[in-house]
Amino acid sequence: MGEAIWAEVLKARRSRLPWLTVLAFTVAAGVGGLFMFILLDPDRARAMGLLGAKAELAGGTANWPGYFALLTQTIAVGGALIFGVIVIWTFGREFSDHTAKDLLALPTSRTTIVAAKYTVTAIWCLALTTQTYLLGLAVGTALRLPGWTTAVAVEALARMMVTAVLTVLLVTTLGLAASVGRGYLAAIGVMFLTVFLAQVIAVLGYGHLFPWSVPAIYSQIGGTNHPHVGPIGYSLVVAIAVASVTATVVWWHTADHTL
């Protein structure tokens, strides 16, 4: 397993994608910080041209809990896309670059190859979440946000990490889609479909039972309007992940590899 993980890390390190994902979450933390800056003193923001003269901001509170909530929601929504892109790239590139065939008849098993890909993508996504949290601490400190307590910071870290883990579990479907679709396109289609369905089903009030809505609801993106995610919702997320990873391994073992 160590050798396969080393190989996946090397491929990732040599690509631009890690830097692009770091940039994406840095921008997200920065935009969140800007939002807090404006909320702290809207008149100052208007004077600086950051806010239109008649614009009103709603739905945010300029304090540490408010900023952490914003960052957690960024992980839930941005993660569904950016974590998704990471998984799609990790699996899909083997087919687009025609390198998958070089992974099929080795002393390293296909199960190990698939497991290494999912492991590296999970670590990558959790590292991005950690980066977002740390950036949030730096930005919040620079803005001198009110409401800091250690308990708030720890609770925020836990909520962000759980949101990230839920999202990481769900994007395993995209590894399966990129494998079965032998490239990026089908998986990107699945990603947008799940994001779309997650929005619609959450609006209809059934999001707590639809796995792809669970991370956003857990992150309290809709406030307290949605029913809480219960054991069924969490179980469905885990079941989706187990089924996707298992199906990916089975596909790599049993499909006819003609690319």
Partner: peptide, 11 residues
């Protein structure tokens, strides 16, 4: 070696 040789382009 199967069909056209493949390699990771950025490596």
């Amino acid at each position: 070696l199967v069909e056209t040789p493949a390699a990771y382009p950025e490596l």
